[in-house]
Design a protein around this nucleic acid. Structure first.
Length: 120
RNA sequence: CCAGCCGGCCGGACGGCCGCCUCGCCAGAUCUCCGCAAGGAGGGCGGGGAGGAAAGUCCGGGCUCCAUGGAAGAACGGUGCCGGGUAACGCCCGGCGGGGGCGACCCCAGGGAAAGUGCCACAGAAAGCAAACCGCCCCGCCUGCCGAUCGGCACACCAGCGGAUGCGCCGCUCGGCCGGCGGGGUAAGGGUGAAAGGGUGGGGUAAGAGCCCACCGCGUCGCCGGCAACGGGGACGGCACGGUAAACCCCACCGGGAGCAAGACCAAGAAGGGACGGCGCGGGCUUCUGCCCAGGCUGCUUCCGAGCCAGCCGUCCGGGUCGGUCGCGCGAAGCGUCCGGCGACGGGCGCUCCAGAUGAAUGGCCGUCGCGUCGCGGGCUCCGGCCCGCGGCCUUACAGAACCCGGCUUACAGGCCGGCUGGCACU
RNA sequence: GGGGCCAUAGCUCAGUUGGGAGAGCGCGUGAAUGGCAUUCACGAGGUCGGCGGUUCGAUCCCGCCUGGCUCCA
């Protein structure tokens, strides 16, 4: 898994499409170059005050991303996962399922003009 | 057995599958990918991979840069019984003094208030200079009352002469009491207050007072013990010296400032600018040599020393910012053992190499065991609980390295070991 | 990672030789008005962020925690 490390990339992703789930918010940006997919993680001090908790949130999200099938994330995308406190005691299988659906939605067809999700 | 005190330690264990970071070795024909570049990633094998507090950032150092070197001083900040340990410390050890506890033991910013200044609200006579005030005592004078002796009978009184007796009246003297004025002696006592000019007891006195005595406290000076803080004891003094320095301050000692986001290098790349070299560079006197006087700048100040600046020409370098690499893992290191020391600690020998991220590595899932807790069932019981089985829950408290080290402080489920004190019972 | 500052009534803030806890707005009651606003009078409201210490006495002085703000790069 390739990681996002520059502040620039995080700011760019924050302007992209947002996909919210119970335990996290995913910000997605299509770089348009068809290159490898990259992931970034954000857990702020406001989310969890203690460093142990912030570490645990990021690590569980990272593991969920690692176990996700490579083709699900698409090509040329930057995904930033903003962790919430719910990650701490969420069931891991449910976390993976949420990630999978979020990736599917984020890399799928663009939203309709009214901003609602496409009807399946 | 119960209650308690002190010190030290642990803070889940084993295993499976899939992953992450890093180090070493091998391979690596410079092959592929990312990047403008610097550089980074990609293979195999092996090793290592969070804490006792990694935390707070309260102290002390190493290391790095900044400042022109040295000395003295000022300012500011800190520390504060004595001795020792240490690279150093505000830390630690041992001791001393004070306070608390039946005790084991615990607590103390614990120098100086006879260098100076400030403050001590309210209450209180008075709050720090010692006196004033109330009160107490003595003397004198005055007024009033009472009593006694003596003298007297004008008035009042009496049954009455008469003032002999009784009730009385007047006067002298003496004594007592109340009050006032004046003079003096006192600090024992005076609702208060955190604190009141040594304390307690006795003697003494007109009343009192270290006025005298005993003990305690205090001060001064010798002596003895101790490196010292200090302790013991003696003589003398005869109360002078309230508290507050985490109020200003004084004394002694320590401290230059900033911090790895320090700093160095590399790549891309303007302007200001910088470095080096050459020539040149204040005023006066003088024929020249030379002599005299000098400006500005560089630390908070002074002194000594050192250096730089005034222009022109030439050559070279070239910041910030973004990115990359280093700094960055052998150290006041850990473990074991022996020796010295009451101890903190020091020394010798042997063994080991033990995290290095930088949007930041320890994760995910599972099995077995252990611990804790809850529920149910059974058994035992000194009725407080203990044991066994099954099941559920937490899979466990506080908490995540960010240059490193020594301390301090703060947070912490549960548990282990050792020593000691008090009480009860039994032997 | 490293510096600095703040915390006092519901809100915004004063508070120094350490002895009284305060102001404005807001709130409540009353007056005035036919009614409302303005105005006037009166009143309630505080572990001075927490825990220790110094002192006779602490919002104030000294430690240690907690929460918040801010600066450097």
């Amino acid at each position: 898994m390739e990681r996002l490390k520059k502040r620039r990339d995080f700011l760019a992703a924050a302007k992209g499409r947002r996909t919210a789930r119970r335990a996290f918010v995913m910000e997605t940006r299509d770089r348009g170059d068809g290159g490898p997919v990259r992931f970034g993680f954000t857990v702020s001090k406001r989310t969890a005050k203690k460093a142990v908790e912030r570490n645990r949130i990021r690590r569980r999200l990272k593991e969920a991303v690692r176990l996700a099938p490579a083709e699900a994330a698409g090509r040329g995308f930057d995904h930033v996962l903003v962790g919430r406190r719910a990650v701490l005691d969420a069931d891991f299988a449910a976390l993976r399922a949420d990630l999978q659906s979020a990736l599917q939605e984020a890399t799928g067809p663009a939203r309709r003009k009214d901003g609602r999700r496409p009807i399946r």
